[in-house]
Amino acid sequence: MADVCMQKEITVLIPVYNEAENLIPLYERICEEVEQLSNYTFEVLFVNDGSTDNSSEILAKISQMNGIKMRYISLKHNKGKTEAMKRGIRTIESDLIIMLDGDLQDDPTYFKDFLNEIEKPGVEFVVGNRTNKYAKNLAKKVSSAIANTTARILIGSPINDMNCGFKAMTTECAKSISLKSDYHRYLPLLASIEGYGVSQVNIEQKKRFSGESKYGKVGIGRFVNSLLDMLSIYFIYRFRKEPFRLFGRVGLITFALGSAILAYLTIGWFFGHYIYGRPLFFLGILLAILGTNILGMGLLAEVFVINNKDN
Rank of each mutant, 00 (worst) to 15 (best):
S210C: 10
E28Q: 15
R71N: 14
L104H: 04
L154S: 07
A263L: 15
V16R: 02
K241C: 05
G67F: 02
P15F: 02
L252Q: 12
A135I: 12
P15C: 03
V123T: 12
N307F: 08
N22E: 05
I30C: 01
R87E: 12
D310F: 03
S94V: 06
Y186S: 03
G80N: 02
F244L: 13
V218R: 00
S176I: 09
G102S: 10
Y264R: 07
N293V: 13
R71E: 06
N132Y: 04
F281E: 06
T150F: 13
I285A: 05
T170G: 14
A145C: 11
L246A: 09
N78E: 10
I253L: 10
Y237V: 08
M70V: 14
E124L: 09
D3W: 08
I159D: 01
A20I: 04
A60Q: 14
F42R: 07
Y183R: 15
R238I: 12
C173M: 11
N22I: 11
K214Q: 15
T91K: 15
S199F: 03
C164I: 04
N202M: 12
L179A: 10
N116Q: 09
P121G: 06
R152A: 15
S144Q: 10
G122K: 01
E57R: 05
M230Q: 06
Y72V: 02
L290A: 15
G248S: 08
S181L: 14
N308T: 09
F282N: 11
S94A: 13
I58P: 01
G248M: 11
P188E: 07
S143L: 07
A60T: 06
N202D: 14
G277Y: 06
V127N: 00
L228Y: 05
